[in-house]
Amino acid sequence: MSALQWVFLVTALITVSAAVMMVASRRMMHAALWLAVALLGVAVVFVTLEASFFAVVQLLVYIGSILIIIVFAIMLTQRSTEAGPRLNPFAWGAAGVAGVVWAALTYIFIRWLMSGTPLQELGASFDDVVPLGKALVDAEGFAVPFEVASVLLLAALIGAVYIAFERRGEGS
């Protein structure tokens, strides 16, 4: 086996076991930490696929924002330090749904590999940032979804400011 395959195997093993530990850990905070390991593992997989932009975005968005928000939410909720039950009552149902989705995805990818058009290898020197950036603002490309997403984010921002705004007369 080549070195890249070994790197992938080790990463995959760490990622998957971190995901399992995340579901199975008794404390919410530990679950969040295991989630961080799993997300980092996915970033490493992106790196081995030479998709450095996606690896960095994975780090920036998931660990930099989402995970920190999750950790804050856990810190601000009550009883976050106590150990809870290992699995919640819906665990087996959720595992079943996840298993079905995984099987369906695997089936689709295998069929695609069998019959679909073979993917082109782009090589390490391929700069994926420029085409992506152009596609995001191109009217032929993804300009409309991009703008819709930014309007959504703006609405969320205004909503957050409205909720947090201190009204005159109430409170200090």
């Binding site: 905070m29 450095s52 932009f53 960095v56 780090l59 660990i63 995970l67 950790v71 700069d127």
Partner: peptide
Amino acid sequence: DLNVGILYLLAVGALGELAIILAGW
């Protein structure tokens, strides 16, 4: 030789923030 070097610099900073939260908590 990362083609998104600046983004990487900003992204890695988030790990430092995580470390501080963990230390405090």
